[in-house]
Nucleic acid binder design. Sequence first.
DNA 1: CGGAATCCGATATGATACTG
DNA 2: CAGTATCATATCGGATTCCG
Lengths: 167, 167
Amino acid sequence: MEEGTSKSPSHCEVTGTGADGADADPFQWDTREDCEVRQILDRIADKWSLLVIALLDRRKLRFTELRREIDGVSQRMLTVTLRQLERDGLVKRTVHPVVPPRVDYELTPLGATLHTTIRSLVTWTERHQNEIAAARAAYDAREAAQTDGAADTAGAARSVEPATAPV
Amino acid sequence: MEEGTSKSPSHCEVTGTGADGADADPFQWDTREDCEVRQILDRIADKWSLLVIALLDRRKLRFTELRREIDGVSQRMLTVTLRQLERDGLVKRTVHPVVPPRVDYELTPLGATLHTTIRSLVTWTERHQNEIAAARAAYDAREAAQTDGAADTAGAARSVEPATAPV
DNA sequence: CGGAATCCGATATGATACTG
DNA sequence: CAGTATCATATCGGATTCCG
């Protein structure tokens, strides 16, 4: 990710609708790793990219402001991330040639359309964080149980069906 | 990511609506890196997790099938990813105790709700991959131009505003 | 077949120092 | 303030091997 994506991603077109991608079939998509969609996906689903886009909601933010809002990001990673997003046309960078340098970042129209989707991802997470926490606790409990006491008579730790026939 | 998330993430509640998260204010959310939301986000926004969830749309898939569909994933990463998703309660794993082992993976109801969101992310990418490709090309062109020939008289490579006053 | 465990290299990322 | 450059390394993740 560090270096520019100078590889040559095959532009694998979707086989479905003739238009401009946007297939309706949930199954019939690429998944080839050298595919452009995969590459883009890897980028926007990036830890920091996600946060940057989520935060740049209809407002400009300065470099330092972003850095302050995104707890834990290093100056370096924020820079790199912003460059990538700028390159992908998702974020617009504006430099004010003033004495103490000032740089603003904001979403481009394209970035704004993505923002909606990202936002829904964040919302989903907020909504279900409790369920996930519960699931984790349950999983860990089972895990510990079978590692520790182990070998209980009947109840298997994970879901197992009562064998029917081999493949 | 390798090890179980045995850290202690602060359960940082959203300040907004009293209910169960689902805040309406796009700004007032966590961003603290030790926050649970951030951790979950990092996981589901993971390169492989994303693909697994996207692929498991209303169907069971065996380990090998998944591996075949997700080009480029190693056995190890697929296993690790599936474990995490299972732990988070997003994927259900079913072991059939037959002679050649057979394991099926499918989304849980919770996972299904996430699938919708993930899917929209994939769709967005498919729809806009051309725009992004164009943006990249443009960016790289500018970049090369100013690195190479550089120093053109007027047109600056990046967006720069004509200075008004310092901060 | 599905997976666990180990080894081990690539690299993504943080910390630090320097610059305009 | 907003980077860039360099260095050190923690982590990710692939290849291999062994197992039920």
